[in-house]
Amino acid sequence: MGLMLAITISIIVAVGVLLLLSGELFRLVIGLAVLGTAVNLVVFMTARPGSLTPPVIEPGFTTLPAGAVNALPQALVLTAIVIGFALLCFSLVLAAWLAQRQRRADVDGLRATEPAPTDAVKPAILED
């Protein structure tokens, strides 16, 4: 189980990094989301998965059943998913807007904040 999850995580990380480096706006955003999934799995793994007993106290008991899975990493992952989801939404809107404005969706088009220098020794003047 542990080995399988580790291999899965490393494949997801590889996919995420590949998307990140593609130089295309939407792939960049999706790549970060994919990487986020891999990280969530890493946190999930710290609960040492294997047990299938949910961490729920049955009616009539006051303690967890023996061998119940650790609930804390799941709570952490849930929090991370919520935050990551909000940021993914935000960045998708941002990327969509940028792609619409400049009619291309690659990162090389993002020169408005860093114009190419026209002078040999001094940086370009930023008008705003």
Binding site: A86, C89, L92, V93, L94, A96, W97, Q100, R101
Partner: peptide, 19 residues
């Protein structure tokens, strides 16, 4: 509220300015 706002911004034509 927040996610509906995002969905509307993504579906509307105006982009983030119309949030």
């Amino acid at each position: 509220g927040s996610l509906s706002g995002y969905v509307h911004a993504l579906l509307a034509d105006g982009g983030p300015a119309s949030r």
